[in-house]
Write a protein that binds this DNA or RNA. Structure first.
Lengths: 337, 337
DNA sequence: CGACTAAGATGAACCGGTTAAGTTCACCTG
DNA sequence: CAGGTGAACTTAACCGGTTCATCTTAGTCG
């Protein structure tokens, strides 16, 4: 066990010949301290290598200056999570670092996970909780919010019971851009591989597809998927069965698009000559697929940063934190469409 | 600001008709409490929804039950980090969750980052610090260890100043298996694309290459890389220039292997017919390259778990924590070699 | 049956900060 | 020059637990 005999406020005060209170005020940057004393205190702090004890401080201030980010560790975890989370973690991390807050990462394995998170928050371990993508209608965000704990979600929560602030991306706009691009290029039989319909991202991208195709007056063709590459392969085969002459496919995720590319290759079709393919995500790997994938970029890192900023404002007591922020998406044109 | 009027020990004690001390002992599972009283207390805890205040507890116990994981946020960040870190985070997370410890994630942007981490640890915010891969000769681990803070590294630190416990994988063994596989298949002109020589992983894999080739009595051919795909492309072109007849290449990372595949394709060579390719990492994406990549799997998640376990033992005061653990690697044979 | 013992509960002293209320003192004003 | 004012510092009361020394109480044994 590490016995750290760290100097306390008391020690610094003695050394500087002042009271604990004065040292505290100096350390916390209060203005009502004479310059000479302030210097003396600072010197003592320096000499002793004093660092305030966080626990003691939290005890009285009721703040911890750390914020949790919850990663849902669902049973059916998929590889795309590992491409998605790092970006969001990084975004959140940068913003919190700038604000001198700490990031606490929690993974909620279904079972006791929820309860753990709740206890943790209520125990005052963190000042607020962020959710990095909600699968299904997770009750936890609402539950915490009702408890009075600041909550922000990445991705619109499906249950808006007590409405919690969230940041999401413009799914519909992205899909519209993709479909429009396909239509402009003369494609007329545009199918889609949909995402899981228990996630808002999956739902909205499919809705966007429906709307865009209806507007364009084109026939619709949908195959279900779950954002994974394998589901993309299966869905693509299914689509080709149902309409061998389709000339384009919009996949609701990059990984499914990769699966589609593979299935198309296996069926002897050329991309984009025979069939154009567009994905959604713009993961790094999509720059290197064969052919490189045209896709809708969603600013994941920026979403993380935005979420963190909202959280910081919430914690600061800002009364007018926007209840939702929707970030723009952007069509990135490469070779597949 | 959330005004949580949480019940305190005092409240529970009053309700149960006992003293604070007794409630404390019940909550912490002490055995020397009469069954009837224990029940009464537990009932009061339940009714009031009592959750112990973590700050107050830490203040006296000097423990926080949370552990930091440092992700070096180096200037020249590469995509592979985002494939590597999630796995290690997950491994660490699972192990800590099982031990009911919290995971605090910190990213150290070069500049003030180090100092921030140090202050944070010294402030008693965490019980220990883990490093998720060390670039270069980072002084931070040693510095913290010298301060008396429990430290464990993933990847052998280059500066073994104060030796800090670490967990690493068997780089040399993996490389040997790869080279052996190539030799057995009749390859005789085996080149390598090396990793950065300021990282232990890069150094050891190159050393392994040298040793294996020397043993086999084959000529060596080395091109430098930095673990990125682009460097793999450049290095492969370079190698082909220098020896157009090479029949195999071992890349010290999967991403560089992917780059090599691309460069080989562009040069008109077929893999594995003309040139066999083996990588190192076994990232998920390597199952889907064209052709699927034969590679050395390193158990990243397991490394994370092991690191966490070492940390837990360290914190528990276990006197005989192994100063190093080396996990086995394994050759995964797919189509590229 | 009384003294001794041990199990079990309690009171109170911390842990190391923050901050409201109080004190000191130099300076200003009528 | 007495009284008032405000800046600057100190005192002391918390924050909410843990834990040790102490006190009760019931059980044990000669």
């Amino acid at each position: 066990m590490t016995t750290r005999e760290r100097p306390t406020l008391e020690a610094v005060a003695r050394r500087a010949g002042v009271s604990r209170a004065t040292v505290s005020r100096v350390v916390n940057g209060s203005t009502t301290v004479a310059a000479t004393i302030r210097e003396a205190v600072n010197r003592a702090v320096e000499e002793l290598g004093y660092v305030p004890n966080q626990a003691a401080r939290s005890l009285v201030t009721q703040r911890t200056d750390s914020i949790a980010l919850i990663l849902p560790e669902t049973a059916n975890r998929v590889f795309s999570d590992d491409l998605f989370f790092p970006a969001i973690i990084r975004g959140v991390g940068m913003e919190l670092e700038a604000a001198d807050k700490q990031l606490v990462l929690m993974m909620t394995g279904s079972e006791a996970g929820h309860h753990r998170v709740e206890r943790y928050a209520v125990a005052g371990h963190v000042d607020g909780i962020m959710f990095a993508s909600i699968h299904g209608a997770d009750p936890l965000p609402g539950l915490l919010a009702r408890r009075g704990i600041p909550v922000v979600c990445s991705g619109r929560p499906m249950t808006a019971e007590p409405p919690v602030p969230y940041v999401d991306v413009d799914h519909a706009g992205g899909v519209a851009a993709a479909v429009h691009h396909l239509v402009s290029a003369g494609r007329r039989r545009i199918a889609t591989i949909a995402g899981p319909q228990d996630m808002v991202a999956g739902i909205e991208r499919l809705t966007g597809y429906h709307e865009s195709l209806r507007e364009a007056g084109l026939p619709e063709l949908v195959a279900p998927g779950d954002f994974t590459r394998e589901s993309g392969i299966a869905a693509m085969r299914d689509l080709l069965d149902r309409d061998p002459k389709l000339d384009a496919v919009f996949a609701a995720s990059d990984l499914m698009a990769h699966g589609a590319l593979q299935a198309l290759r296996e069926s002897g079709r050329r991309v984009p000559d025979d069939v154009a393919v567009i994905g959604f995500d713009d993961f790094e790997i999509s720059r290197y697929s064969d052919p490189p994938l045209t896709t809708v970029r969603q600013p994941i890192g920026e979403a993380g940063r935005t979420m963190a900023r909202q959280m910081l404002r919430l914690i600061a007591g800002d009364p007018e934190v926007p209840s939702s922020v929707v970030l723009p998406t952007e069509l990135v044109i490469r070779a597949s469409a």
